[in-house]
Each structure stands twice: as structure tokens, then as C-alpha cells.
Write a protein that binds this DNA or RNA. Structure first.
Lengths: 333, 333
DNA sequence: ACAATAAATGAGAACGTTCCCAATACGGAG
DNA sequence: CTCCGTATTGGGAACGTTCTCATTTATTGT
């Protein structure tokens, strides 16, 4: 009943605990095959199981990585998490998933745990912490998503600016010039960048920017709904609307239906993220697919890399190019 | 740079490490307020941070709980996970999330980690392991979902049989007697139970069971699509279809559209799970909402309970009653 | 057959806490 | 003034590994 330790195994096999330890850790090269077998047998007979905690105390590594995301319920993150997990797993690491809920206090509490030596690394989509706070953890880390304020840290995300451009260009090519923009506002800088992308595109195409066409709101379906109603009741409503994410677009679609506006007949509509739901509405939504799994995977790869070769890299940044998913909600003017 | 330990804090504050340890653990009752302050100050000045690993080695607890689910990408689980996490968090525990992918080997690997002493408890939706394997871990555990083969272990889930009954009754009351059933097949016993519920209901209502109305398939959208086509091309197609989950229902809806069958005009359609997507299709889908967050929360509560009062409980089982969500896809015959 | 090298093993000190028990200090009662 | 209970503190042994050396045993070349 009392749990069996390496020492008892050693006694039972008639060797020293050092030898048992070597066998456990798979350091076969330096232990005689026949004693190895004897030890193995002792392990099986006694039902020995290694105490990972004790090992970690000595080696200073836990083979566990903490992944901090704002919210698992949000459809985007689970797939990223899967990428992280799969990449870690084949390298013998375990993923620990936690949510910050965009709350500073939770985020800090989680980081604190990491500092306590429980994790060998952190992959985080930062909600409110600063680069300094992260660096202070003295633990290898990788940033998820585009964040301009973390110059020193590895980063992997999606090139949303490029995504915006893809959508706008698609609408432009369909003949649209009056393009509304329902822009989600997040805690960090992402959404302003999107507005910039929009502005730039318009400038590049020599389209005058109509302030009323740009609406900022939170990322909820009802916000998309409200925004769409607002856009459609302008004296001169846009002929196409780009919503900052699919949830907003779904809300917008609902508004259009209520107003009797045919999509894409009277107005084209496009979203971003390519969540599953956007493929089951009627009409199905044109949107931009971001890399999710791949982002998670790459983040894990970067992190493991850092963990293994401690020093002196320059920070690496990867933004994956998103792809346009053309569906039914966009059409010629 | 070298990390500062309890000993250096002790030196710096001019006390013994025992005293520092007491302060760290918040055992304030047995340390003089003034020395306490001195220790606190030393901690701050040196930037001391407790090494959780070392502590765990001694106390034999890590305050970490492993949650094993088949797949985070599946819309159902994230919310359960949130429930677990929130309940654990307020009790000072951390959730570690891992996915088994319904693979026996992964599941076993995860359990093995738990046996290694890394976790104080397990909450699991078992894919392939047996009760014995779980009990062998000698760690408090809770089963997620309905599983008949775990009599000795606490369990919390949804009463899907009741859910099926709710849907069927709803359709019955709308006048439907010819009810098709697209039944998902899972690795474990759940789906057979659903067929039983269906059979029982039909028997209770004195409706003769038409074998052709019952189709078994995997839980993919395309499977729902195929099944619906099959049902609708029978000589005497059903006037209502109940799909085992929303994904199947969405596939079925697509098939109906292609066949020009109006929903709910010519055929009613209902799903189960109440995933977000089922609220954005046209028509929106009638479905059954299961408790997700609550299930996770309750599982965590049970587990903590077990952890705290080691011995001799009888196993507890809770099945939450699901609720019918009436939407547009069901109507009078 | 002997030295030199390589392979296999063992002994014991870390790792940084917590826990048990002994030691000391401080009051108040007798 | 002494004794005893209580409140604080300190000392050192766990906890179960891994790691560094030293030691023993086998192997090779001459």
C-alpha cells in the first residue's frame, strides 16, 4: 500500500538506487542489459511508479507547458490549443490550459504559478500583462497573436491586416465601392490596426472614406445586429459590409433578414475567422480563414526550441497568411 | 540571479527557515506579527518566490486536477471545462486539460501521469478505460457523462434519455406519428440507450416501430446529410426527424434544402445539444439544451469533496435534466 | 601477462520545502 | 521567587529523485 520507491526496487533487484534510476530514465547505454532486465522485473513485480515531483525537484524541469488563452468557449482557441497540445505531446511535454478571461488578476495569478517552477514554458495570448511582466518570469515564452508591444519575445499569429485586405479586395472586385465596416473593438490594439488596414485600402483604391460606414462595437452577435441596422438605415447605405468577425456578421445577417434586405442581392456581407457556424447560415457567409491549429503547433515548436537552446536567439515573429473563403453572402453589385 | 530560497530569506530576516515557512504558508496564528512583518519584508526585498515543486514533494499534493475529455474542438466540452476550472479556481486548485481523442493509448498515458503524483484528482469522460484502471490510480476521480460501467465512482452528466423523450414528446404533441431517428453511434454505450429511449417512447404511445426510420451513423454533418436523404426517399417518408445531435441535424437540414423539402412545412426536424450553430441556421433548429457549465462545476465540487474527506462515501450520481429549446424547425403536421 | 582504457556500478550529496519535536521566552499563579 | 502553561522559534530529518564522483569490473592492445 505504502507507495514503493526507487530504493525498494533497488533492494529487490540487488542493485543500487543509482542503477535503478538509470533504468527508469532510459539511460540504457550505461547499464548492462542483464541488470537492466533484473531491474525491470523488480519494477514490475513491485508495481513501482516513478514520482514525477521528486524528479522535477532535482532536475528543475516538469515537462509541463502552460497555455494561457482568454477563453476556451470562444470557438477560435480550442483548435489552437489542439495544435499546441499535439506538438508538445510528441516531444514528451504536457499542456496545461488556463483561461484569463481578459482579467488582469487572473492572468497574473497564472503567471505566478509559472514562476513557482511548475512549468517549463508559457504560451500566452496576452490580455493585459506587459512584456516586462512576462520577461520577469524568467521562463521561455511565446506570444500568440499579433501584439506590437512584445518585441523581445517569440510570436506567432495570423496576419489579420492581410485578411482584411483580402476581403476588401474581394468586395472591390465584385464592384463594390461603398463598403461598410463593422469593427470589433478588443482590449488590445488589434482593432485599430484593422481600421488602419481599411483606411489604407480605401486610400489605395482612391475611394473617399465615409466616416458613417465605420462602426466600432464589441464582439457580440447583438452588436453586429445593431450595427447592421444602423448602416442600413443611412440615407445612402453601403452596398457591402465587412464585419470584423463571423459572430458580428451573423448578427448583421439577422438584421438584414429582419429589414427585408436580400443578401447578397441588395448587400454583400463578409466576416472573418471562418467559424463553423458561418458555413451553416443561409446564405452561407464569405469569410477569412485563419490558421488555428498551425499557429498553436508553431508556437509550441518555437517554445521547445527556446527551452532546449537557452541563449541568445533573436526573437522570431511569424504571421501566417489567411485565406479567403468565398461563399454565398457576397456577390456582384 | 540564482533563485532565492527560503533559507536566504531566513538569513536575511534573521530567523530560522521554519519561521519563514510558516509565514509563507499563511500559518499566521503561530508567528509573532512583528517577526512576520520582518519576514515579509525580507521576502519582498529578495524577490523570493516559493518553489511549488519542493513543497509538493513534502506535502504530497500539487493542487492540480487533471481533466480528460475526448476533444476540445467539439463544441460541447469547452463549456464543461470552464465549469470545472471556475469551481477549482475558487478553491485554490488548477485545472490541467488534456484530450484523449478517443484513443486508448493517449488515455492511458494521461492516467499514468496522474499516477506519477502530479495531480491530486481526475475528472474524466472515459473513452476506453475501465473502472478498474481508474481505481488503480488510487486518486480521487469523477466520471463525466453517463456511463454504466463505473458503479464505484462519482458521476455527473446529463440525462440524455430524458432529452430524447422531450424531443419525441414535442414532436408527438405537434401531431407527428411517423418519426425518423438519425442516431449517432459512439464508442461507448450512449447511443444504444438512445435507441432504447426511442423504442420505449414509441411503445408507450402505441406507435408501431418502423425499422427503416431508425438510422445509425457517425456524428458528422455529412452523415446527417446522407441519412436524411435516405429517410426522405422512402416510399413513406417520416413527417418528423429527430437527429441525435445538432451537427447531424444541420447535415439533415442541408439535405432537405437540396431536396426541396420545406422545414418545418413538409417535415419537422430536431437536434440535440444546443450548440451555437443550431441557432443561426434557417430555419433555426429545435433542439435540447444540456447542462454544460453546471456539469463541469458539479464534477469539480464532487472531486474536491472526495479529496478532502478521504474515506468511505458511497458513490454519488447526478444526471441533470435537459431542457427543450423550441425553435423554427418543428411545427404542426 | 600487464598496463591502459572503457564499461558498469555504487555512495552520498544535492534539490527546497514541510513537519515533528525540542528549546526558549514570556506571563501569571502560588 | 519558583513553577508551569502558552506562545514563539529553531534544528534537523524527511520527501524520492537525479547527479557527480569514485570505485569496481571487463576489455583491449602490446
Amino acid at each position: 500500500m505504502a507507495k514503493v520507491t526507487i530504493i525498494e526496487v533497488a533492494k529487490h533487484a540487488g542493485v543500487s538506487k543509482s542503477t535503478v534510476s538509470r533504468v527508469i530514465r532510459g539511460e540504457y547505454s550505461s547499464v548492462n542489459p542483464v541488470t537492466r532486465d533484473r531491474v525491470m522485473q523488480a519494477i514490475n513485480e513491485l508495481g513501482y511508479e516513478k514520482n514525477a515531483i521528486a524528479g522535477s525537484l532535482r532536475t528543475n524541469e516538469t515537462k509541463m507547458i502552460m497555455l494561457i488563452i482568454p477563453d476556451i468557449v470562444n470557438a477560435f482557441w480550442p483548435e489552437v490549443a489542439r495544435g499546441v497540445q499535439d506538438a508538445l505531446e510528441i516531444n514528451g511535454y504536457t499542456m496545461v490550459l488556463s483561461c484569463s478571461d481578459w482579467e488582469r488578476s487572473k492572468e497574473q495569478r497564472l503567471l505566478m504559478q509559472a514562476r513557482n517552477g511548475l512549468f517549463d514554458g508559457i504560451i500566452i495570448n496576452p490580455a493585459s500583462i506587459s512584456e516586462k511582466e512576462l520577461l520577469d518570469c524568467k521562463i521561455p515564452s511565446v506570444i500568440l497573436g499579433y501584439h506590437e508591444f512584445f518585441p523581445e519575445i517569440d510570436m506567432v499569429g495570423n496576419d489579420t491586416a492581410r485578411g482584411t485586405e483580402l476581403v476588401l479586395n474581394h468586395l472591390y472586385e465584385l464592384g463594390h465601392r461603398k463598403i461598410g465596416f463593422i469593427c470589433g473593438v478588443s482590449m488590445r490594439s488589434t482593432s485599430n490596426r484593422r481600421i488602419n488596414s481599411y483606411m489604407e485600402f480605401m486610400k489605395k483604391k482612391d475611394i473617399e472614406i465615409e466616416r458613417d460606414y465605420i462602426l466600432q462595437c464589441h464582439y457580440g452577435q447583438e452588436n453586429g445586429y445593431d450595427a447592421m441596422k444602423q448602416l442600413m438605415t443611412l440615407q445612402e447605405p453601403p452596398t457591402a459590409v465587412y464585419a470584423g468577425n463571423d459572430i458580428l456578421a451573423i448578427g448583421a445577417l439577422k438584421a438584414a433578414k429582419e429589414l427585408g434586405i436580400s443578401i447578397p442581392g441588395s448587400c454583400s456581407l463578409a466576416g472573418m475567422d471562418d467559424i463553423y457556424s458561418s458555413s451553416v447560415t443561409s446564405p452561407t457567409l464569405t469569410t477569412v480563414a485563419k490558421e488555428k491549429y498551425k499557429v498553436g503547433w508553431q508556437a509550441a515548436v518555437f517554445l521547445l526550441d527556446r527551452i532546449r537552446s537557452k541563449e541568445g536567439f533573436i526573437p522570431r515573429k511569424i504571421l501566417f497568411p489567411p485565406t479567403l473563403v468565398k461563399r454565398e453572402s457576397t456577390g456582384n453589385i
